[in-house]
Design a protein around this nucleic acid. Structure first.
Length: 477
RNA sequence: GGCGCCAUCGUCUAGCGGCCUAGGACGUCGCCCUCUCAAGGCGAAGACCGCGGGUUCGAAUCCCGCUGGCGCUACCA
């Protein structure tokens, strides 16, 4: 039995990744299987260099350790897709030779226009197979001429693909509904669909446990397995974590970064416990067992049943997570609690980063926390008079705060880009840079006087800073 | 729009044809404890099991339709 998680290094490690990782790990440990970590870094445009290490750190923090992966190696490496491009190229050639895939020379412009026309005609947007009939020689000629191309899957013109989802039973997709998916991009990198199938096969993955959002692309994957003549893995599609409004969980509506949860002082055991609670899976709590909802990873391995999972997507309830974390905190011994505080809010590297910001601004050490309290507190809410600039109203300030949040989502979290982003925002509006900075300072620190704003933001980190902004927007709604 | 998945208290869930006048947990409210706040104890409100048809002696549980929610519909994963 072999399972895997395949995160993409495109940003902060995601709580959904942790959820799927937990499910995979429990599955593997229950069946003496191996748990593989594979980095799916085939999208160059969204690649974030620091992200991979952050994913490693976050998963290790949660204790969700893998048996094989880019950092620990293993018999099926390399475990980073960008290091396997040669393999994908070979496999694509096989598909091409067998007529199961074809080269497509359509320009992005043509594709876009085609989609527009289809939308206008109220037709489902799908590739019109313009290049599918291209003769071998003609295609060769265009390749020789240096025309950029992608490789698409040749989906059968008729029929249907049925596959078994272990939690839902058979699922059927008519081939008319399946697009001729791009397998290899014009930059020579594979898309998820190709790389994922090739790697799952090469790495001998027996059970694909992933999020529900993949159900509709599974027929493409099945078609690929068949084209290669490979045996199918079992598919387990887990319910999708949701926001309060039931949409797919997103950073706009929830703290979604594992960095945030760590930084905000959640204990990894509580986090894992809470994730294990979502979607069911654990046996029904008996009337006597009052604290049946509290369990450790080992207990999950012992009792979790995948067949029990309820398929309705669970709302990620921060309130309940907080309560559970409180339960865990209270159960620590005094010594453990002390260690937790020292390793969390008072962690050396965090304190060390904060100290220079305070040193020249205080006269006694006693003032240290008066000045820097916002680094350690979550519930910062400035009184209106501090965040509404003179001559403006609360609605306008709120709107600006929302724009700031949006602006800060993207870009590196270092002083220069933060500064540039905020100043650019001011320039685009009738706000002065000073007003923008003051508003953000009030929101983040809760006061009008603080250590330097930008430096403080950098120390506090993106996830926590943005969480604070979103909380502000929430509370002033 | 097309296709697919899903559907029990506000939220997470138990329930897998009779044990259900639907159980537990979070949250909410009240009482107790108490110098405050928590924690803890006790209790309450909260779900006509989305709606409508079947099947059955009997349905939250099985079937069909509807509605609703969500996902996918990219040279992103």
């Amino acid at each position: 039995m072999r399972v895997r998680i395949a995160p993409s290094p495109t940003g902060d490690p995601h709580v959904g990744t942790a959820y799927i990782a937990l499910m995979n790990l429990v599955f593997a440990r229950q069946r003496q299987g191996r748990f593989v970590l594979r980095i799916e870094d085939t999208d160059r445009s969204r690649f974030v260099a620091a992200s991979e290490q952050m994913i490693f750190d976050a998963l290790h923090w949660l204790g969700l350790d893998w048996d094989e992966g880019p950092d620990v190696g293993g018999p099926y490496g390399p475990y980073r897709q960008s290091e396997r491009t040669e393999l994908y190229r070979r496999k694509v050639d096989e598909l091409l030779a067998a007529g199961r895939a074809y080269r497509c020379f359509c320009t992005p412009e043509r594709l876009e226009e085609m989609r527009r026309a289809q939308m206008a005609a109220k037709l489902p947007p799908r590739y019109d197979r313009h290049c599918r009939g291209l003769r071998g020689e003609e295609a060769q000629a265009r390749v020789a001429a240096g025309t950029p191309f992608v490789v698409r899957l040749a989906v059968p013109e008729s029929g249907a693909t049925t596959f078994r989802d272990e939690l839902r039973g058979d699922i059927t997709f008519d081939h008319h509904q399946v697009d001729d998916q791009v397998l290899m991009k014009s930059d020579g990198y594979p898309t998820y669909h190709l790389a994922n199938v090739v790697d799952d096969h090469e790495m001998q993955i027996t059970d694909v446990i992933r999020a529900e959002e993949w159900i509709s692309s599974t027929p493409k994957h099945v078609l690929l397995y068949q084209a290669f003549g490979w045996a199918l893995p079992r598919f387990w599609h887990m319910p999708l974590l949701r926001n309060q409004d039931r949409s797919k969980i997103s950073k706009r509506k929830n703290p979604v970064s594992l960095v945030y949860y760590r930084q905000a002082g959640f204990l990894p055991e509580a986090m894992v416990n809470y994730l294990g609670l979502l979607g069911g899976g654990m046996p029904a709590p008996s009337a006597e067992a009052k604290d049946a909802e509290r369990f450790a990873f080992a207990e999950m391995v012992e009792k979790f049943q995948f067949e029990r999972i309820s398929l309705g997507g669970p709302v990620f309830d921060l309130e309940k997570l907080r309560w559970l974390n409180g339960v865990y905190l209270r159960r620590l011994t005094p010594e453990e609690f002390f260690a937790a505080v020292r390793g969390g809010p008072l962690a050396d590297d965090y304190l060390r980063a904060i100290c220079p910001l305070a040193q020249e601004r205080i006269e006694t050490l006693g003032q240290f926390f008066d000045l820097t309290d916002f680094f350690f507190r979550d519930e910062v809410l400035p009184p209106a008079e501090t965040w509404v600039p003179k001559k403006r109203d609360a609605a306008a300030a709120r709107k600006m705060a929302a724009q700031i949040a949006e602006r800060l989502e993207a870009g590196d979290w270092t002083q220069e880009p933060l500064d540039a982003g905020l100043r650019a925002l001011a320039a685009e509006t009738d706000w002065s840079a000073k007003e923008v900075f003051m508003l953000l300072r009030a929101v983040v620190t809760g006061k009008t006087a603080s250590p330097p704003l930008l430096e403080s933001l950098v120390v506090m980190g993106r996830a926590r800073s943005l969480a604070r902004l979103r909380r502000f927007l929430d509370l002033t709604k």
